[in-house]
Simulated scan of single mutants.
Amino acid sequence: MTSEITLFVNPTAGRGRGAHAAQPAASEFRDAGFSVRTVLGSDAADALRRARAAVDGGTGALIAVGGDGLVSLALRAVAGTPTPLGVIAVGTGNDFARALGLPVRDPAAAGRLAARALKDDGARAVDLGRVGDRWFGTVLASGFDSRVNDRGNRTRLPVGRFRYNLAMIAELAALRPVPYRMTLDDGTERETEAILIAVGNGSSYGGGMRICADAELDDGLFDVTVVGACSRTELLRVFPTVYRGTHLRHPKVTTYRTARITLAAPGLTGYADGEALGPLPLTAECVPAAVRVLAARRGLSKGD
């Protein structure tokens, strides 16, 4: 194992926390005896190119310093390679780090844990989802939540999370079920009217909403959550329970476990790790042990 590691940094993550997080994380790696180089990019495509170059060049680890968006880029660089991934979670959602049981918004602690795991060869293999050539670690979202993302992304003002809060209010006003066709890995097709369908490799999205609360990162299967047709009032009543994962007991919620799924529905975009994948239909497969992560043995199953 080379003693050089690469910090893959999003300086704008978490309203600037990414830029401030790089230094304490780097200090922890240097204190542990590693040589540290930093990779940034002028845009997402340039950042991904630089991250892949670091991996191809034999870096000892790629350490993503940012939020789930940067982790999503990092996964595209390291998935299917022996290069381990570390996560310094300083973004807004940090759901992949939560699923791994990693420190959130504590770059020194996260850097210390990753350095210790790397020195002890303590990287753990976990599953990833794949849609075409795109990898994801947490949840593929479609339906109400993806419409909120679509609307929020179309709106320039206001900035930050408030923009998506307004988008959610607007989508609630226009709430309607969507006719889905869902094909699972046994070839069975199911047609259903649903508010949303979420495909979970990890358990949460949106900063701790445990939409697929029972999902595990190392079982080779997705957990699929289907929220059936319901009224705005009922959806608002159920919504707070998503943070505890108890929404899975609601009669309008159905769950499945599958290694592969195709979702088809008119007018919907699929999002994974918060990033747009493209319009449905989309086919996702769960790839076992697709990436090695620098994480403690605990926390590899369900989010905290």
Rank of each mutant, 00 (worst) to 15 (best):
V65N: 04
T246A: 13
G160W: 00
A97S: 12
F162L: 14
A290T: 01
A109I: 02
A109P: 10
W135L: 07
S301H: 14
F239I: 00
R176Q: 15
E275A: 01
D56K: 14
A32T: 00
A141Y: 01
T12V: 15
S142Q: 07
P179N: 01
K119R: 15
G228R: 09
L217E: 09
V227S: 04
S301K: 12
T155L: 12
G80N: 02
F144W: 00
L102I: 02
I197P: 15
R237H: 14
M182C: 11
T188K: 11
V226D: 12
D56I: 09
F29V: 05
R151E: 09
A19Y: 10
T192D: 13
F136I: 01
A289T: 00
R297L: 15
G69N: 02
L248T: 11
G33Y: 01
I63M: 08
I261C: 04
A264Y: 00
A99F: 08
R15M: 12
A26Q: 11
V126E: 05
R260F: 14
D150E: 11
V226G: 13
R98C: 12
P24F: 03
R50Y: 10
V238F: 08
L172N: 06
P179E: 10
R298Y: 10
S231Q: 09
D150S: 07
L48R: 06
V36Y: 08
G208I: 01
A109D: 01
G137D: 01
V238T: 09
A117Y: 09
R50T: 12
G228I: 15
